[in-house]
Amino acid sequence: MSGIERGGLVVEMAGLNKWYGEHHVLRDVALGLARGEKIVLCGPSGSGKSTLIRCINGLEPFHEGDLTVCGTRLDGSAQALAEVRRHAGMVFQSFNLFPHLTVLENLTLGAVYARGEPEARAAERAHGLLARVRLSDQTLKFPGQLSGGQRQRVAIARALMLEPEVMLFDEPTSALDPEMVHEVLDVMEELAAAGQSMIVVTHEMGFARRVADLVVFMDRGEIVEAAPPATFFEAPATERARTFIGQISHANQGPIT
């Protein structure tokens, strides 16, 4: 997208407010993601982190505030929505692969129909991305034939087909069996190392420590604390964050990576 110089902000929001009925789910949220950086969003369930990440590519509308993705302000118009979705790739907790299409078709569908890319070129890019997530041998299978970890890697490759400026991960490992979490996190870390800007909602604190430039802690719809991982984990400033970290590390007892 023109107008963004290297190092600019890919995602920028201010004063974001949203209600579900009377329930105030996002309270004056302000957040900026610089190009090439990684933000990990964490917080107890119901804290609004999934809602927030879904607002960024317009899957959830919000009531007040400004949200700009790659220079396009989400103003409720269909054009803005389409433009934002061209630049933001989304990975869901429940994969949401299309079960009636093969792995390859899952990848090429968006490129061919939404962007009008020739089928052969889309397939070529798809093969490249599948190699990158180490699934070159699964291209003609259906999602139902894959393990959870493989499905989530397909979903990541599918989102990468957009050549997104920013990748949005909504609890990408929460629906996985424990032994498959790693293969997905590995792929995400490789992406991060390659300079992909991303916002990740996750409970994987090891991943946050290794990858995040900024850990953002949310509770009850507001951002309570935002700090680099070292500071956040070693010296949390608020009581709420301390309690949360205590609960998380308790649940993660065992080999903390």
Partner: peptide, 15 residues
């Protein structure tokens, strides 16, 4: 059809 199917397709930019 689960809501997620439609959302995933939206996220890919399909109308």
């Amino acid at each position: 059809i689960p809501e997620g199917q439609d959302e995933a397709a939206k996220a890919l930019g399909l109308g």
